[in-house]
Design a protein around this nucleic acid. Structure first.
Lengths: 257, 257
DNA sequence: CAGTGGTCTAGACCACGTG
DNA sequence: ACGTGGTCTAGACCACTGC
């Protein structure tokens, strides 16, 4: 059975038939199709996607090909495999995923109790800088959330968060304060926005007025400034966040390989 | 042909035969064998390892199984696949690998010219802290290298590097200064030590005396302090390094997923 | 052209989680 | 006992590299 002429393979053939410029293997095409469906929300965070067997039947390819597609998605943390149970869409509600984006760890091993306090939430016009990060027109409407994270009752992180108003309709001081979940879990359940990837730029800066005020450190003392752009499916930026970390009892961890 | 009784599969059977506590799939065993050989230096950095076909024959397993083992090693940057050419042992001599461990990037895109200046190189006894990082007995003999990295003639990184004397025999002020290569490339070619993985802990600190002196920043100004433990094969730590970075025109980049 | 890694298939069997 | 993902095989064919 050399090659069946089915929907997916039709695509494949088109790609192959050309001058070879746009060749893309079958499993990559399957991967794209799965990504599309994830983006469209066909399977919600926390749910299982169809079994490999069923996907193979649906796409008219072998199970091994579906497997390779899922392998790559799992490697990028876009899916989670659980032997004997199925393959799941990750959710920031789970404890494991929840701290995936927070690399700050205590110097001693002991995991602290954390609490969050919303300082302010306003609607503002994006500066050129913020607009650029979020790929918006300059002066576009954005929501700005300022909050303080404390570990073991010690103020440790001052976050300044900007979100496109168009995407997060209905966020304001009241709704933000009413929310009990971690922010990313809330974005997921309330606005259908899944954070999938992020880029961070880290610098050492001297504490300014607002940091002094909320973190209770002396003016000019060194803070870790972590700028993060978070992306959903399709590499669309949906959050810019500037965090100021006190790295006295904590440090930012990074494994290189 | 359900299962041949060969050297490797013998291992496999032993593992399987037990109570199931120590089951490890064939490709993992192959992976371990390859890692052993890499550690022993059977294939030098930059060289190609035998083809998948040959390894399959040598280990008496199917090519697919070897493939999966190599896939995992390649995912960890322990091997590099090159279609049509072979599978290679990475080397810090290559430009791509060379900056794998340096995450500092210019704020504007433009890549600067870099230069390194050795400040000092001495033989000292390890502090308890250093000894712990390097898994040595306290007060063990270590080599300490202090150096200054400049980008576009601007002093930017002050590095303080500790190496176990036992591993790096013959490093001193003279030899270190004579060396032209990047340090990790030098370690590889001269001492047979390949840096394979590293853990970094990042903090913001205030500039002290030595930093003021060599980096030319005001006392107390914020610096990024990057503590790195580097490992060879077998997770053996062979370097501790404390870097102080000026993050004025540069930042530390990190992609999360 | 030969040799390398890369894709794809089909099928057997295993380990895990749930009834 | 069943369905899920995980392993392993054998073989065909494709794409890239270099002689």
């Amino acid at each position: 059975m050399p090659n069946k002429q089915t929907s997916v393979k039709a695509l494949s053939k088109q790609a192959r038939g050309g001058t070879g410029t746009t060749y893309s293997p079958l499993y990559q095409q399957i991967k794209s199709l799965l990504l599309q469906r994830l983006d469209q929300g066909e399977w919600r965070p926390g749910e299982a996607i169809p079994s490999e067997h069923e996907l193979a039947a649906r796409f008219q390819v072998s199970q091994g090909t579906v497997r390779k597609a899922i392998d790559e998605l799992a490697a990028d943390n876009l899916l989670i495999r659980r032997q004997g149970k199925g393959t799941f869409v990750p959710t920031h509600t789970e404890a494991k995923v929840r701290f995936r984006f927070l690399k700050l760890t205590p110097n001693d091993g002991h995991q602290p109790r954390s609490s969050s306090q919303i300082i302010d939430c306003t609607r503002v016009r994006a500066s050129t800088e913020i607009a650029q990060y979020l790929q918006l027109k300059s002066a576009a409407s954005v929501i700005r959330i300022q909050r303080l994270l404390s570990f073991d009752e010690q103020p440790t992180i001052l976050d300044d968060i900007w979100l496109p108003s168009q995407v997060f309709k209905g966020i304001n001081a009241t709704t933000v304060r009413a929310n009990k979940k971690p922010l990313y879990a809330w974005f997921e359940s309330e606005f259908g926005v899944s954070m999938v990837r992020a880029d961070e730029a880290i610098r050492a800066v001297a504490a300014q007025e607002t940091a002094v005020q909320h973190l209770g450190v002396p003016a000019g003392s060194p803070l870790l400034q972590v700028d993060r752009i978070s992306y959903t499916y399709g590499d669309r930026p949906v959050e810019f966040r500037r965090g100021l970390y006190i790295t006295e009892r904590f440090h930012y961890r990074h494994s290189l390989s």
